[in-house]
């Protein structure tokens, strides 16, 4: 059988889709906070795709966000309140960036 040829970007995206599918099923039985944990983990994995897809170049803001996620996502295990604060801060940073990209200053 002829082996299918896939680009690195296609493989990376497929891996994320597998992660999302298995997470969706897992979240039915897992602790409630694992839902946000999986989402933020997926966010980090999606940012990883930048730079590997033609037309999607590495984004300094997202690179910084990914580093922050990877450094703080495990708070979910040890410090749920700290995890919530980290998510709040993440949303705030995204909003500031959204405004900047929309041409507005905060």
């Amino acid at each position: 059988m002829q082996e299918e040829q896939r680009t690195e970007a296609e493989e990376r995206l497929f891996d994320i889709l597998v992660f999302l599918a298995t997470s969706a099923r897992g979240c039915i039985d897992e602790p409630p906070l694992y839902g946000p944990f999986r989402l933020v983990d997926a966010l980090s994995r999606l940012i990883d795709v930048y730079g590997h897809v033609p037309g999607l170049k590495k984004d300094p803001f997202l690179t910084e966000i990914k580093a922050e996620i990877d450094g703080k996502k495990f708070l979910v295990m040890s410090d749920p309140e700290g995890f919530k604060r980290f998510l709040d801060e993440l949303v705030r940073k995204f909003t500031v960036e959204l405004k900047r990209r929309s041409g507005q200053r905060s």
């Binding site: 298995t22 897992g26 983990d41």
Partner: peptide, 8 residues
Amino acid sequence: RKVSPGYL
């Protein structure tokens, strides 16, 4: 690993 969201 890919089918195990908790496998980090």
